[in-house]
């Protein structure tokens, strides 16, 4: 597009325009900076929720139990390899958690002889409140505080309660968001138990 500009000769004190090469470098620098920023934000938009863990190896965890027969014992995913693990993240202030507490405890008592381990992770709770909750629902499987909220973050939990079903090979087979019912829990565990050890 040929254009006629309103051009007056530049006064002598106006610096000469930057050479085109230098200007191009500046353009690239500015665009690169903007690109980095936008890229970062785009990454931030990536869904990072617990559901995306389904079918993937479970992130490692370790807790120190505070309740009942297991008080003081350490439990980690590595120790429990070869067992089916039900990892339940809960909190004493969470109303929905209370709805599934008995279901989980009964299942623990029923499936413990068959080699299923239930692990409770107490998220954002004080020990006093946590213990009171465990006592109220007479929960006997190992429960421990989530120190530094590390397990919650590693499992990309989006709230409480969330329950992760990990098979004998350490793969997350199912993620339950919100409270779980007894029929669903039994069905899931039966399915995991019938799966052979060698089957991936």
């Amino acid at each position: 597009m040929a254009e006629v500009r309103e051009e007056t000769p530049p006064p002598p004190y106006v610096a000469k325009a930057h050479p085109a090469g230098r200007r191009l470098i500046w353009l690239i620098v500015v665009l690169a900076l903007l690109g980095t920023l936008l890229g970062l934000l785009a990454l931030g938009l990536q869904p990072r929720t617990s559901v995306t863990l389904q079918g993937k190896p479970a992130p490692p965890f370790a807790i120190t139990a505070i309740n009942g027969e297991f008080a003081g014992q350490k439990f980690s995913l590595a120790d429990l390899r070869g067992h089916i693990v039900v990892l339940n993240i809960w909190a004493s202030w969470c109303v929905e958690c209370a709805r599934e507490a008995t279901v989980l405890e009964q299942a623990w008592r029923a499936y413990r002889p068959r080699g299923v381990w239930f692990i409770g992770v107490d998220y954002l709770d004080t020990d006093t409140a946590g213990l009171a909750y465990l006592k109220r629902f007479d929960i006997t499987y190992p429960n421990g505080p989530d120190i530094g909220s590390r397990i919650y973050q590693a499992y990309r939990a989006t709230g409480v309660p969330e329950t992760f079903f990990i098979d004998r090979d350490g793969i997350v087979q199912h993620v339950q968001i919100g409270p779980i019912g007894q029929t669903q829990l039994d069905a899931l565990l039966d399915r995991l138990l019938t799966q052979g050890r060698s089957q991936p």
Partner: peptide, 11 residues
């Protein structure tokens, strides 16, 4: 005003 915060304040 949540319950968590009340527990934390107690702690």
């Amino acid at each position: 005003p949540t319950e968590t915060c009340a527990q934390w304040r107690a702690k």
